[in-house]
Design a protein around this nucleic acid. Structure first.
Lengths: 333, 333
DNA sequence: TTGTAGGCGTTATCAG
DNA sequence: CTGATAACGCCTACAA
């Protein structure tokens, strides 16, 4: 069933059918009703491929994320899909994993699908070495590229992020002022965001005159790896009374470590997570965490994208402020 | 840059270019190389819309799930997207929420996008009232419909699920035999899967001659609602020494309730979750949970779908066995 | 307000 | 092995 069949049955031309389809005002009420009823009776659905061919767009957005089962990224994907659909766009999801080559392949794949834009979810896409980000810049030559929680300068790139440097600086400073004068920082990877957090931590401790050596540690892998790492650190004689992590899962590992060692939370040791995901409520004691305003960032990203499609003015970089959510792993007032 | 441009530059016809594009054997090595190099030089990418128009397919699969930020569903989406991509298919994600009308709209949306199949993730799509499932049967008239962890009979519907009835029956029986003779069951909703779990629980207790009254409770909402519910149940004088839930989040709520009341886990009260999601490791004590083999189900679903596309024989219903993962909220040997 | 005709970029069916 | 040509189904000037 195509536009020709409908036009015949309704006794009009295909142009008129097309006009009805596209809500053109240049159709008389009568013919419109006639055409609509014929469509209804034959349960006609326009062919999106044909439409896409003519218009050069199928109203789809490519969403690239490393791992949609990660609770933080999963939330972002949820918010984005919801908002995009509200604006009439579908989402093609592509989970890249954490390796550069795989990310590049997925990007190529999405571009070949001719999506109207690409959204990169999570700062894992922004690598330290500039040449590793070239594929993102090149994507920007074809379609708008939106970054969630990552920053990269380039034409047709638009970044929405949270000031995590400031957030980690603030919470570290507060802990130091409170007497937790021996903090360490655990991060998963030095993505853009990971770097910001680390720098925020380092700035805070250096302002207090602390030696940064041995205070910053990479912890990849899962929760057990974190526990193992802290165990061996502790067993090697290293001591600390505050742990600030770059995500909530790391922090839960830290909680488990502390409990196993008989350290009292938060009196003996303070722990701060990051993302304020649901996980922060599941653990025991419940986790103080930095909320980086993910939903707001996602909404803003979609709004911005729609403005780009409308050729309106938009900012290339928008920064939100984080908020510290206090729970039981710290004793802030 | 289209197939005509390439054909001109390569000095061949568009038919030949198309043949090269589709790996047809009926092209001489020489022309093939020539055409390929021209494509390379002009970084030509075939237009998927045009191809879709001709072939009636763009190799995309529609994935419908209630909420991709739910940790269980998020995992399923991750596995599905990964496996589909491996087979050359892209995934269009659509999060429906839990209301029927919204589910129907999303289904319509995906069908209008002419995806090659629809995958329904989670038994929330299967409702008790048969007429509420009609839209799924209708979808089956257009494309194959795959159900993850739900069951509905119909032509062109294919279901992969886990025997959760048996799993809950087994664990309940074991708890009863162990002396936890006063169990209750908490479920989120009576989807197909929810129903199976509930029936498994009821069968086990009825075999032991227990009165089922007041032993089965709906707990919608978030973790705090679960805690509140159990609090008020307890405060009203109701007692129980085992809680079997239909997902891990409910179980974590139960843990928090028990700890707050000073009940000892697992000596005084046993708690069993469902899904064996990551959450089971985050809480304290760590949660015994029923693993319903999600990854296996997802892989099987994609494999089945590929066989359907190849017109091979497939089963309409495939059932896997669950596995009990014992942790600290039970004292099974 | 309505109709005609050309274009979008492929694939596929014929001949040669 | 290669080439011309007709679909595929829609949108949109341009004409009436």
């Amino acid at each position: 069933m195509n536009i020709y069949d409908i036009s015949k049955k309704a006794g009009v031309s295909i142009a008129t059918v097309s006009r009805v389809l596209n809500d053109s005002p240049r159709v008389s009420e009568k013919t419109r009703d006639k055409v609509l009823s014929v469509m209804e009776q034959n349960s006609y659905t326009p062919n999106v491929y044909a439409r896409g061919l003519g218009l050069g767009s199928m109203n789809t957005i490519g969403i690239l994320c490393a791992d949609s089962s990660d609770i933080y990224l999963a939330n972002a994907v949820y918010y984005l899909e919801r908002d995009l659909r509200q604006h009439g766009y579908s989402s093609i999801l592509c989970c890249t994993g954490y390796e550069l080559e795989s990310k590049q392949n997925c990007m190529k794949l999405l571009l070949s699908k001719r999506t109207d834009a690409i959204i990169l979810v999570g700062s894992t896409f922004i690598e330290k070495r500039a040449e590793h980000n070239n594929y993102i810049l090149e994507a920007g030559m074809e379609v708008p590229v939106m970054l969630i929680n990552g920053y990269l300068e380039g034409s047709n790139l638009y970044c929405s992020l949270c000031d995590e440097h400031q957030a980690v600086y603030d919470v570290t400073s507060r802990l130091l002022n409170q007497g937790f004068d021996n903090p360490i920082h655990l991060y998963r990877a030095l993505s853009y965001s990971g770097l910001q957090k680390k720098e925020g931590f380092l700035q805070a401790i250096s302002e207090k005159g602390l030696n940064p050596q041995d205070r910053v540690h990479e912890c990849s892998g899962d929760m057990d790896d974190v526990i193992d790492f802290l165990d061996s650190l502790y067993d090697s004689g290293k001591r600390f009374n505050a742990i600030i992590t770059s995500n909530d899962e790391l922090a839960i590992g830290a909680i488990k470590f502390a409990r196993a060692k008989g350290l009292r939370i938060p009196e003996g040791i303070s722990i701060v997570g990051h993302n304020n995901s649901k996980l922060a409520r599941y653990c025991e004691p419940e986790l103080t965490s930095i909320d980086n305003k993910l939903e707001m960032i996602c909404i803003h990203t979609v709004t911005t994208l729609m403005r780009i499609f409308d050729n309106k003015n938009v900012a290339n970089k928008t920064m939100f402020s984080a908020e510290l959510i206090k729970r039981q792993t710290t004793s802030f007032n």
